[in-house]
Design a protein around this nucleic acid. Structure first.
Lengths: 209, 209
DNA sequence: GCTTTTGCTGAATCTTACTTCACATCTTGC
DNA sequence: GCAAGATGTGAAGTAAGATTCAGCAAAAGC
């Protein structure tokens, strides 16, 4: 035996792996999954296409890895809000603002991660992520329903509606990227207002409740 | 000149064209765009793949035709509600119920027409359809805002949110097809309630308004 | 410096469907 | 029945990219 992987080599491998991830993310952020071909990623990472397959078994796995990392970070941020001590309605508003704000900060990436047509494998991973986001909102809603801040309602359905509303408002055909920071803030507030009202008590509509 | 297209032949051509449309629609409804390959459609229509290209210039055009026909019908139904004499909130509720109800009646088709990953050409047509649906809801909202039934708000954003909420509740990862007709009705009402509240005045939230 | 093993390369291969096209068949009008 | 033209066929052509692999380069240990 005349070869054993050294720490130095391991570091280089790790670095390569990370560089591949970053190259993929960068290209997706610029042109969507559509333009993120293995050859382009390899090029951007300073490796050959063949080498990519030493680090990730397939294109789908690479993209799922990249998507998963972004999703994990997003979930952490939302979770932090969800478990805070503020009243549920306030946590909801914060969570909506953060979700919407992050999407507006990286519009191309958000579009790719939310609605761009992709191969089924990747779409499944994306739905999984959406589901996790939905769960966070669902928990906030359940907290609020439990302590009376929100009226009784099906938290799972309402959470799905919230995620859908935010997504469509951001990526849908109607959505236009705000030009100024004021327009941006206004858009965020309008979406937040929509979400807040949608799950709040409304005596005019349900006098019985 | 020894050939001129007769009425009989024209009828057969029209029939073939229609049969291709129906075959495509049937296959999409069963297995999504993913399984709707030209060979399969030709087979189901009782023609050869080559013949399909005598009726539609490409797969994308065929699918856009099928999608467009379904979309036109849907828009007509929603428009009819939008221009009726009922108060705006009632029209909104009706429109939501119809949109959601139609999707629940043909869940696979709805999934394909709303969120299944597809090639960019087709996705563009799909977004166009979504935009038209959004416009109908927007008009109802504007009517309601104008006559005071709804509070002042950005109707375009709210409409996008409504479409997104309905879509996600129906096709999203959380969505489960209702088993019984009661469960179905309940789901419809919950989505309708969510949408109604989202665009209605809420004194508890906006005491100033 | 030499051997062994690992890592890297990128052109060739594979895959999947759409699309085309040379040919066969059918329609029409006489 | 026949000529002229339209329509139908389905195997072959094509394209776009992911994936592989035989050979080369670099690292590790002695």
């Amino acid at each position: 035996m005349a070869y054993r992987r050294s720490a130095r080599m391991q570091a280089r491998l790790d670095d390569n792996r990370q560089r591949i991830r970053e190259a993929a993310r960068r290209i997706i952020a610029r042109g969507g999954f559509r333009h993120a071909q293995m050859a382009a990623i390899a090029d951007a990472a300073g490796l050959s296409t063949g080498s990519l397959y030493r680090y990730f078994p397939s294109k789908a796995e690479l993209f799922i890895d990249v998507l998963g990392a972004a999703a994990d970070q997003e979930i952490r941020l939302l979770e932090a809000i969800a478990v805070s001590q503020a009243p549920a309605p306030q946590r909801l508003a914060q969570a909506v603002r953060r979700y919407v704000g992050r999407a507006l900060d990286g519009p191309h990436l958000a579009h790719a991660f939310m609605v761009e047509p992709v191969e089924p494998d990747l779409d499944a991973a994306r739905q999984q992520h959406r589901k996790r986001v939905g769960k966070v909102f669902q928990r906030i809603l359940e907290d609020g329903i439990h302590d009376g801040a929100f009226p009784p309602q099906d938290a799972a359905i309402a959470a799905a509606c919230l995620v859908g509303a935010m997504t469509e408002a951001l990526s849908g055909p109607t959505a236009a990227a705000p030009e100024t920071s004021e327009a941006r803030a206004q858009l965020v507030e309008r979406i937040a207002g929509f979400c807040q009202r949608a799950v709040s008590e409304n005596r005019a509509l349900d006098p019985a409740a």
